[in-house]
Design a protein around this nucleic acid. Sequence first.
DNA 1: GTCTATAGGGTGATAGAC
DNA 2: GTCTATCACCCTATAGAC
Lengths: 176, 176
Amino acid sequence: MPRTRVDTRAEIRAVAAELFARQGFEKTSLREVAERLGITKAALYYHFPSKADLMRGIVQPFVDEIEGLLADREAAAEVDPRQFLADYFDVVLRYRQVFELVLRDVSALAQLDLMQQMLAWRNRVYALLVGPDASPAQIARVTVAIGGLQDCATTEGPPEEFRDAALEAAIAALAK
Amino acid sequence: MPRTRVDTRAEIRAVAAELFARQGFEKTSLREVAERLGITKAALYYHFPSKADLMRGIVQPFVDEIEGLLADREAAAEVDPRQFLADYFDVVLRYRQVFELVLRDVSALAQLDLMQQMLAWRNRVYALLVGPDASPAQIARVTVAIGGLQDCATTEGPPEEFRDAALEAAIAALAK
DNA sequence: GTCTATAGGGTGATAGAC
DNA sequence: GTCTATCACCCTATAGAC
């Protein structure tokens, strides 16, 4: 009786992502993930070399998109703040589920060397929006704008309901 | 040789808070905390009935202050948004270390029934700042303001350097 | 690709002596 | 208040058969 699984790796990621989000990364055991899928722990290890790699597999696509956006703007001659915030917000909204997982398990991600990379995003965003020699006050405004948008992304309800208002608020926070 | 400890419970909390913040709640074992203090796990259990209670002991003072602030404003005839944001920000800044711990281990806190309480804060803040029948757009603006301030609180450096600028940005985000 | 079996270790928590 | 000793359990990960 062959398993009628199209993409086992993807199914593992989906189930794991849901459990990680609900119970936390550390509190979720691979036994639990395997049971939910109807396979054994050992089968899991065929698809992912470790629990950490499973987590990375879930978060990596989101990380790659943000890195892509940052690289794109860093290569551009000049950056439109409004456009950047909108694009950044849209990526976060598209990966909403993953993003919430990330927010709820920061300390777990820190052990996967993903946090360092994400913390570096902040400085790259500062450089993009207020230049390399930004004052603490300028940095504060960018932080309010970006942090505020991120917090909005975890709000319930369809994104269309709040997307534009959140962007307006972030832009207002940014303005000197 | 009597231990020259003034307040053992407080010292345990301090050491645990530091380890929890650095490694995460789940990744930090009570053996580690005890070793750092030069006592045994069993001694720890004399002061705190469980690991969860130890965590609660660390976070509770912060929770109580925010609850106090909210209760105060809910009892007031009217609320000055600027003043509320300033007071809220100042509490968060005062408990900066605890607040960072909270942010880094949301999933751990969820299991202590502390998250439900904190999530309720959001709705109480919405009610205070934009009334009980707020539109999604109004809620988005409040979320940007509050979330932005919170993100600022985790910025390095002395608070005086960014406090006022952050508040201005949050107020700007709030304004219609 | 998936299984059984197991290695090898850590964990939170408790009992009872001092 | 602190200790030693221990319980009962769960974990990630691997070896090797099918």
